[in-house]
Design a protein around this nucleic acid. Sequence first.
RNA 1: CGGGGCGUAGCGCAGUCCGGUAGCGCGCACGGUUCGGGUCCGUGAGGUCGGCGGUUCAAAUCCGCCCGCCCCGACCA
Length: 585
Amino acid sequence: MRMTNLFSVTLRDRPSEADTPSHELLLRAGYIRQLAAGIFSYLPLAKRALTKIEDIMREEMNAIGGQEITMPVVHPADIWKETKRWYQVGSEMGRFQDKSDRDMVLAMTHEEVVADLVRKEVHSYRQLPMLIYHIQTKWRDDPRPRAGLIRVREFTMKDSYSLDADLEGLDKQYRAHYQAYFNIFHRCGLPVIAVKSDVGMMGGSLAHEFMYLTPVGEDTLLLCDACGYAANRQIARFLKPKAEPEKLKAIEKVATPEMTTIEDLATFLEVPKSRTAKAVFMIGLFPEGTEKVEKFIFAIVRGDMDINETKLANAVKASELRPATNEEIKAVGAVPGYASPVSIKDAMVVVDDLIPDSPNLVAGANEEGFHLRNVNAGRDYEADIIADIATADEGSHCPECSESMRTSRGVEVGNIFKLGTRYSVDMGCTFLDQDGKEQHVVMGSYGIGSGRLLASVAEQYRDEQGLILPISVSPYDVHLVGLKGAEDASEKLYSDLVEAGVEVLFDDRAESPGVKFADADLIGIPLRLTVSNRTLKEGSFEIKRRDQSEAAVVKLDAALETVREVLQDLIDEIVEGVIEVPYDN
RNA sequence: CGGGGCGUAGCGCAGUCCGGUAGCGCGCACGGUUCGGGUCCGUGAGGUCGGCGGUUCAAAUCCGCCCGCCCCGACCA
């Protein structure tokens, strides 16, 4: 491709909307342009990079038996009503009516369509196991798109769906994906770790997220360097420090004027925060049929910990949680700032599993200006649910080996879910087993967003000048710079390379050397060739790796051979970076 | 949805406080110049000042409503 023909220009200044490095560079280098919040066009450079990424995905999916298909972007709402997700998913789902006023859905994922295909196509155990996938557009109307391609509303995703006769089969395909995903990320040069994660709206029994660790990420992870435990904070377990057992003391009411926070209260009463109970009030939404029922949730953790809303939602089996309003809190007989589960009504009381082992805590008196000492779960109030609902934090102790854990931010670049029969039951995906007995198809679903992956790679591989892409993802193999006075020689080198199958971006513009070098650095193709009068005197050209400062001078008649060698080096270096990550981490 | 910021030429910005009919840099076009790290000189094209309404002799500037974009939080695969 000649740059005089390339449909994009580079930008000298950082566009004001970009403040994430990958976003800035992808814009400035002319890879992407934004149409609206979270909606992008992918220009030729990005399109080529994405095609490389998607071809890697195809190879790895095909290698574990995947068959590529394409499913629709527009779905009739009926199938989403069958699985209840029409009712369960909120504003994130794109909905509209067609010309006959039928409810329609913009695809946010494809479990429903897969299940519909399966119930029509799969009837016998002889057809299982099966793995299908596609690479297709998704629409998720995220309330807050951000950071360029990291978090968008319209995006392309490779999503695959495993179909099995039983849980053993699912486990096998799940493990195959686990490894295939590492292969994909490694081939793109992206370091990732797998963490256990919440199943969220997908449902199912087990899920892993593949996380690229970067401060730009918006998920928080708990990592144990000692044993390798890794989990999204949403579900991370941790060892809770148990209190010394002591005799239960009688409740004692104390005046605590204007002490409405745990901090103030602990200081005022001169007790550690761990000797207080923190109350949080949420309204849980519970799907019942096609309706959602609201219930008041009174959640209690020890004062030195925080509530984990994901754990809480899972513990009570709510589809959504929202903070309760002051009116709702008062309606159950609690007083904000001075609330306790003693003497309240019409609330689901959920206590953290540490609370029953923490005797004689300070809790609210449900009376303005007063707290109670020596409140004990089981004696003074009954818990409806006892569960782990506290959030792990920096320094929390590892649930596996008890060492201190650290936190890190990460971008979720892929996820895998064991769905089980959650969709096949709702949509009637059955087959006959060897005994002629009807069984439900066991499903798994697995996704990688290609744009987010490209953005993560851009985030990882860059310097002050621009991108430094891994060769496997780079839109072209080499960036050929022809300087003034060397037009004939660079034209010849260009056509020789193209003829030999090398993918070349050829800067044939009438620009000054500085402009051409600056643009080459910005675009980030890992190998740059320069032909100029200077090199031509010796019948040579210059070859320079984007990640190295020194260039080598090579005879023109050895061009093809040398370029192939260096390209191979670039490929090998990525492959060398591959590390096996055990499934049971 | 809550908090904050911004919206003036393709991009980056000044002008807004204090009303008088729009400017700078880059980019773009043309001419010349230079040629190994965003050359230099000249000429030129390009703007409903996000939109609607109001105040005023007069609005980019003041007031109201709305829209859009970005950041933080809530939320989210």
